[in-house]
Design a protein around this nucleic acid. Structure first.
Length: 784
DNA sequence: CCGGTGCATGTTCAG
DNA sequence: TGAACATGCACCGGT
């Protein structure tokens, strides 16, 4: 029944990739008696020139149903010129690939038979072929009266290679799980008043039939005009679920049930692709191609996580992606919005007698789109060609939509420009201040509230209560938080590293702009610079120190100096008196701090404290993070040391806290009267006074409590004690103010004496130090 | 030991 | 109540 051709044909099934070495077999029984070529490997039918005649099409575009011989036409002008029906193998009653409208008369009696849309089929130019999964070749539902069935069956003769995966489940393309009905009980061909069978990929026909019937029973009147698919469905069309179609303006993001695909109305509204009318107009206007929105999915934490698995809605996967019979699935090529083609593994897992479909290996793609949980990926198809396009829409905080191969986002104000698109979430976001993605990344809570709100709004729009999504996003916070922390560490390390990298000597950069970011390109690989140490003098002035590679002496450098990896005293162009190794080192006193910092740095770097993050590390990290967030240059390798104690302050801060050595313990003599020491002493004195006062207060309260007879008063007093214990500021505002005033006056005195106008810093320092202490305490509590 | 893979289980939602 | 889906987790192979 078939002949083998070893030919030079290329299998156009994107997932097959077989080229000239593949053997082609005549195997697909066509009405004319000719056999289409089948890829020996994947079973895809090669599109032959016989195709048109095989279909018995007349040149007007009319065709006859393979089974009932009724004439069918979708009404599309183009389809009169070229054969553009999505099925092949000799059955009608489907949808025009050009206009995606169903047959005008919906007179098909046998929807779905053999109907599979080749993903990249291009009838008009013949560049692509049929994309028919082998399972489908053998498991198409047997329809009553289909006398071609026997003609079809011999394809089993491909035996080992073309053997159906589940021979026992003839009529069913999937597994033997039994979850899908077998077509061994032939379905009575439904007559549905909706587009059917134009199933790009599909179908478990029997299941589809059932669901289509279900859908039909929902009295969905589907728009079947000859207008393009991108035309907005009438409100009434979408009216079934309260939401998408009923939303307000043409600007609103409307969820549209895909105009094709198995039981499109059966897909949950949350998966309906949502575009504004203007977006759709823009898409259709900007491209000569037909963009067919298929479905979309909001990324869950696991979708966006590092596992790289994107869970696909079952119905969507089965409706729009190639059928797979093996759990391993098939590689599936999808183009992203930038035109880059990705290959994902489209596969499934058996799950509770069902299947769970996933796209594997999506992490690079997700990352390249900078997507995170809560964002939405959209799947569309380009026709003709059937190429799958993966777009995305950021969650409310960005409101950017991209997809369909272009930046098709349209502002809700300005639809002519790409940009922020009005989304249900962005509508909702009006109550939320605009936040950059960076902010949100770093602040999961924001995302929480934001997204929580957004999902609610979206749910409203969809008419679906989507608590699950909200919960999911909430649940992922831990993970996201953790990841952001991790990312922060990575970033810091990276930035530190960046700062150590120096251009190769003599190299001049070529500046290139990539995505609005300027990059310096060098022909020679970078070299690592020399680590230096930055210190602050009591006056607040900063200086950098570097050690000579020859004599190891430390030399004072300008703070902006960047040393090459190999640096010696002779390279010290900043200090002529110390540009030789024979020159003496700086005074021991000044070097002491440098050496100590260097030592501490090494200690940290060697991971001596890796097991437990000490306060210093935490604050150091915080300082870096803070600095990074504030846009500080992070290159000061030792800046964490100089500001370690006081992360909120920036480099150069001369407040009492920042100018202290990181250890916090003085190297100053106890009799020292410098600013630091005097302030520390003063603060200590104040602290002791406050403590004493609190103690007195507590005693008074206890005494009073004992004296009070009334039980209620007693309890009140108890509460008071508890409050005082837990938050000494809570009740003692008056006292605290008093203390503060006292401190202020003392400071004024000190400032006058010392001539240092740092009272403000001091106040901040005191406050923040205490705050810091609490914070560290909390953190350590949390970590424990 | 770590990361990937495959499956199991818990939760949510729709019929 | 069952299907769908999100995610946890055990197992396994590679380093």
């Amino acid at each position: 029944m078939f002949q083998v051709k070893t030919g030079s044909k290329m299998c156009m099934n994107a997932s097959c990739g077989s080229t000239s070495t593949v053997e082609w077999k005549k195997g697909w029984p066509l009405r004319s008696g000719a056999l289409a070529d089948l890829c020996f490997r994947c079973g895809s039918a090669y599109e032959t020139s016989l195709f048109c005649e095989t279909f018995h099409l007349d040149q007007s575009g009319w065709r006859e149903c393979y089974l009932c011989n009724k004439r069918l036409h979708c009404g599309c002008i183009a389809s009169k010129l070229v054969v553009e029906f999505m099925d092949f193998g000799g059955v009608g009653c489907t949808t025009c690939t050009n206009c995606h409208q169903p047959n005008l008369n919906n007179r098909g009696e046998n929807p779905g038979l053999f109907s599979r849309l080749p993903m990249n089929r291009q009838h008009t130019n013949g560049e692509s072929g049929m994309n028919v999964g082998k399972a489908d070749l053998f498991s198409q539902p047997l329809v009553q009266g289909d006398d071609k069935r026997e003609e079809f069956m011999p394809h089993r003769g491909f035996s080992n290679l073309m053997k159906p995966d589940n021979a026992t489940t003839t009529g069913y393309r999937h597994d033997a799980n039994g979850t899908h009905e077998s077509s061994s009980t032939p379905s009575q061909p439904p007559s549905l008043n909706m587009p059917m069978a134009a199933l790009p990929y599909s179908l478990n026909f029997a299941t589809a039939t059932k669901k289509l019937m279900d859908a039909a029973s929902q009295s969905h009147t589907v728009q079947s005009s000859a207008s393009g698919i991108l035309q907005t469905p009438s409100k009434s069309v979408l009216g079934t679920p309260p939401g998408p179609g009923t939303s307000k303006s043409a600007q609103a993001r409307i969820g549209r049930p895909p105009n094709e695909g198995r039981g499109r109305s059966h897909l949950l509204p949350r998966y309906w692709p949502k575009y504004t009318d203007k977006e759709l107009q823009q898409i259709s206007g900007n491209l000569n191609l037909n963009i067919v929105p298929l479905f979309e999915k909001t990324l869950s934490a696991s979708d966006a996580g590092r596992i790289g698995r994107l869970v696909l809605p079952k119905a969507c996967a089965e409706a729009y992606f190639p059928p797979i019979s093996q759990s391993e699935g098939i590689p599936l090529k999808i183009q992203d919005v930038r035109g880059k083609e990705w290959t994902f593994q489209f596969r499934f897992w058996p799950n509770n007698n069902s299947r769970m479909y996933v796209l594997e290996g999506v992490t690079p793609c997700i990352q390249s789109m900078m997507l995170q949980a809560g964002d939405t990926v959209t799947f569309s198809r380009v026709d003709p060609g059937g190429k799958l396009i993966m777009g995305f829409r950021k969650a409310a905080h960005t409101g950017v939509i991209q997809g369909c191969g272009l930046t098709n986002g349209t502002s809700n104000e300005d639809t002519s420009s790409s940009g922020v698109t009005e989304t249900p979430t962005s509508i909702n976001a009006s109550s939320c201040p605009a936040q950059t993605p960076e902010e949100l990344k770093g602040l999961p809570e924001h995302l929480n509230s934001n997204h929580g709100g957004s999902s609610l709004k979206k749910s409203e729009v969809n008419g679906v209560k989507d608590k699950k999504r909200t919960r999911t996003v909430g649940a992922k916070h831990k993970r996201m938080l953790w990841r952001s922390e991790e990312a922060m560490e990575v970033r810091i390390t990276w930035e530190e590293t960046q700062d150590l990298i120096r251009p190769s000597p003599g190299e001049k950069p070529t500046v290139v702009v990539i995505e609005e970011h300027e990059f310096e390109e060098f022909n020679e690989p970078p070299v690592f610079g020399k680590r230096t140490i930055v210190t602050s003098r009591p006056s607040g002035e900063q200086e950098r120190w570097g050690s000579c590679d020859d004599c190891s002496k430390w030399r004072r450098l300008p703070v902006e100096a960047l040393l090459p990896a190999k640096w010696t005293c002779s390279d010290n162009v900043w200090d002529e008196s110390r540009c030789s190794c024979s020159a003496p080192e700086e005074s021991l006193k000044e070097l002491e701090n440098v050496l100590r910092i260097s030592k501490e740095y090494k200690k940290r770097r060697t991971g001596a404290s890796q097991t437990v993050r000490t306060e210093e590390e935490l604050t150091g990290l915080d300082a870096l993070a803070s600095a990074a967030a504030l846009g500080d240059t992070l290159g000061e390798e030792e800046e964490p040391a100089t500001t370690t104690r006081h992360p909120r302050h920036r480099v150069g801060c001369s407040c009492i806290v920042c100018i202290q050595p990181p250890s916090g313990k003085g190297r100053h003599n106890s009799s020292c009267l410098c600013t630091v020491c005097s302030t520390v002493k003063r603060r200590f004195k104040t602290l002791m006074m406050r403590r004493k006062k609190k103690q007195l207060e507590r005693e008074e309260i206890e005494a009073a409590a004992a004296a009070v007879v009334d039980q209620e008063n007693k309890e009140d007093e108890k509460t008071g004690r508890i409050d005082l214990n837990s938050d000494p500021y809570n009740k003692g505002n008056v006292e605290a103010v008093g203390v503060e005033e006292k401190v202020e006056s003392e400071k004024r005195e000190a400032g006058e004496c010392l001539g240092v106008a740092q009272a403000d810093d001091d106040v901040v320092g005191v406050t923040e130090l205490e705050g810091e202490g609490e914070k560290v305490g909390e953190e350590s509590k949390g970590s424990s």
